[in-house]
Simulated assay, not measured.
Amino acid sequence: MELEILQDLKNYFGDDYEEEQESTLLFCIKRSIKSFKNKRNYPSAYPQIMIEKDMDKYYSCLLDLSLYWAIKQGYEFQGSHSENSTNRSWESESEIYSLHNVIPIARIL
């Protein structure tokens, strides 16, 4: 899945993509996957194949999370940024999960 997301990010960035960005993008993808798994809170008894199927179902969320972290490089922990008449503000990671209807997996105790 990581390589598929990486290729989609390269395609998204197009001419703005430079080869030396690959390690940073892979870091952002890894961070997104870990965050997603924490959000879903998979039960320990969940087989890896089910986790992979679930993550594939939410591929667009994982892509958006990876893009979110890639674009925020150098601006982590800022809610907004202004410089030379350029203003940026970011959605929160939680809003990306809400947009894709990602909720934790419920467990019966």
Rank of each mutant, 00 (worst) to 15 (best):
Gln7Val: 00
Ile103Ala: 14
His81Gly: 02
Arg88Glu: 09
Leu9Asn: 02
Leu109Trp: 01
Tyr17Val: 04
Gly74Cys: 05
Asn87Cys: 10
Pro104Gln: 10
Glu22Gly: 04
Glu52His: 05
Leu99Met: 12
Glu2Trp: 00
Lys72Gly: 01
Tyr42Arg: 05
Ser92Pro: 03
Pro104Asp: 08
Glu76Gln: 10
His100Lys: 06
Leu62Glu: 08
Ser85Asp: 15
Met50Ile: 04
Gln48Asn: 10
Leu9Cys: 05
Gln21Asp: 11
Asn101Ile: 05
Asn84Ile: 01
Gly14Thr: 00
Arg88Ala: 13
Asp8Phe: 00
Tyr59Phe: 14
Gly74Arg: 01
Lys72Leu: 09
Asp16Val: 05
Leu109Lys: 12
Lys34Thr: 13
His81Arg: 12
Leu62Ser: 00
Glu83His: 13
Glu19Cys: 00
Trp90Leu: 07
Ser23Thr: 07
Glu20Leu: 11
Lys34Trp: 06
Cys28Gly: 04
Met55Ser: 02
Val102Trp: 06
Tyr46His: 07
Ile49Asn: 09
Lys34Ser: 15
Arg40Ile: 12
Tyr97Trp: 13
Phe36Cys: 06
Thr86Trp: 08
Gly79Gln: 12
His81Thr: 06
Asp8Ser: 03
Pro43Glu: 03
Ser35Gly: 14
Lys57Thr: 11
Ser82Glu: 11
Glu18Tyr: 03
Glu20Phe: 13
Asp64Glu: 14
Ala45His: 10
Ala45Glu: 12
Leu99His: 15
Ala70Pro: 01
Leu99Cys: 11
Leu6Val: 01
His100Gln: 05
Tyr17Phe: 15
Phe36Val: 04
Asn38Trp: 07
Ser98Gly: 05
Asn101Phe: 11
Tyr75His: 15
Met1Gly: 05
Ile29Gly: 06
Lys37Gly: 01
Pro43Cys: 04
Asn87Lys: 11
Ile33Glu: 10
Asp56Gln: 12
Ser94Asn: 15
Trp69His: 14
Lys72Gln: 14
Glu22Ala: 08
